[in-house]
Nucleic acid binder design. Structure first.
Lengths: 260, 260
DNA sequence: ACGCAAAATAAACAGTCGTTTGTTTATTGT
DNA sequence: ACAATAAACAAACGACTGTTTATTTTGCGT
């Protein structure tokens, strides 16, 4: 550390590092089956039978998702999360181990459904025609990422934004999480695209997939830039409209002549 | 502030706010003409005639550009910057007023040249043919942003990444800075695109411009994602290759049939 | 030669950071 | 009924945050 200026923020802590009471993921009972209750008492809350308000763990996840998306990992303190979620500060360490663990837990619950839905739609497109239609492939790739954000049953637009934010960050942890969650899925789609466009060399497919990712992330990020530029006429948070414009645009790009 | 959890990071400081010794931008001599020297002495450094190493101000800008790009505004502390730049901590307050002021100064020196070069190339394209060729417009828009990062005379790839990062962030300050620097230029290009594609309705042009921005920012961010997916075959930091693939891809998208 | 402003410095300020500790209460298995 | 454990809590830890103060050294105009 003394040998330059390697650490940009200084390590958060080191100390004696007795691991002490770990969060339940590493506990015997483990399994993270969530009880439902919340009571302003000192110890463990009384179990309220059923259908009570969301548990501490869930409230943390919900708030963290929203704040991380809005201000970025480094832009949000744990106290901001615990205050808004009305939980104790130490709860985060208890349930998730660390701030990074919280981010991983966030992706663990959301990423898999998206990736699965993608593959389901892709398989469906392959059934309909062989080779599958280009537009159908693009739709299968993009739709789950975008509509999940519009679906109130899931986290709303928060996770979509968060993913877009991490997608553009070169930070090690974020990139590792994203890769683990989506690389396999992405590779499958690159293959499908190559199959659907036999005249386009692999290298061109890859470049075009890169541009596809950029357009997708930028739409998901919903930075407000294009709204400002067009007086609100163009609004990326309108998911249906975004897909309606995006898929033909990208399809035309993918079908264009190879650059050699 | 007490009324909820509005502030995500807690205000950095407040105090009595006597404005004290302001940074030179607000000083009589002002004009920010940069002297050249650096000496490990207490007060003002001895002037070393000419062509010495870059001034304190410039070293701060250079290091801040790189670190902000890599870790984001909130991910970098002022001490990380001053340590690596080998300057005193208070120098940032002296030269730029605040951390935000530093970011603004960074854009102030880099954004204008990019925007100007864009308009120059656009005018050039308009001279050659009327209406200008679509590919020429896209090239005029994209090239300055990308090649500036490859040009060692400018800040190298740091500013490019920084811009991409801010481009996806909905933070107020970042967005205001970006808007001020590039909105005017973007509007001109939307007009030019509309002129060059009379059959495509304005709304479609705007959506497609949005996708163009996404592809551009994602290329500029150079997150490493596509390299990982393609075993390094596709590399966005290869600016020439990026432009060669990007412009035909986008042109085909822009020329596709309107979605109505 | 002298004064004054510019530019640099060390040190402190008032908080916030992520994490850890020790304790208390409620639930569960036997 | 009773021990074990899960889940909550207040409080503290040391390090780091952006900013300010007071001081010192230097350069330039007069």
């Amino acid at each position: 550390m003394k040998t330059g200026a390697a650490n940009v923020r200084g390590k958060p802590r080191a100390r004696t590092a007795t691991k002490a009471r770990l969060h339940p993921a590493k506990t015997q009972r483990g399994k993270v089956e969530m009880p439902l209750a919340v009571k302003p008492a000192r110890g463990r809350p009384r179990k309220v039978d059923n259908k009570a308000e969301p548990s501490v763990r869930e409230r943390i996840l919900e708030v963290a998702e929203r704040l991380f998306a809005e201000y970025g990992m480094t832009g949000v303190g744990l106290r901001a999360i615990t205050t808004e979620a009305k939980v104790n500060l130490a709860s985060i360490a208890y349930h998730f181990g660390s701030k990074d663990g919280l981010l991983e837990a966030l992706f663990a619950q959301r990423a898999a459904p998206i990736a699965e839905e993608r593959l389901r739609l892709l398989a469906l497109a392959c059934e309909k025609s062989d080779p599958p239609k280009l537009e159908a492939i693009l739709d299968a790739f993009l739709r789950p990422s975008l509509v999940l954000g519009a679906d109130p049953r899931f986290g709303g637009p928060a996770f979509v934004k968060l993913r877009a934010r991490l997608g553009n960050e070169p930070e090690t942890l974020s990139r590792k999480i994203l890769s683990k969650a989506f690389d396999q899925s992405s590779r499958k789609f690159i293959d499908a695209l190559a199959l659907s466009l036999p005249k386009v060399p692999r290298a061109d497919i890859e470049w075009r997939f890169h541009f596809l990712l950029g357009a997708m992330f930028y739409t998901m990020a919903d930075s407000g830039r294009i709204q400002a530029l067009t007086n609100g006429r163009c609004d990326p948070s309108d998911v249906a409209a975004a897909l309606r414009h995006m898929i033909p645009f990208l399809a035309a790009g993918f079908r264009s002549a190879p650059v050699a």
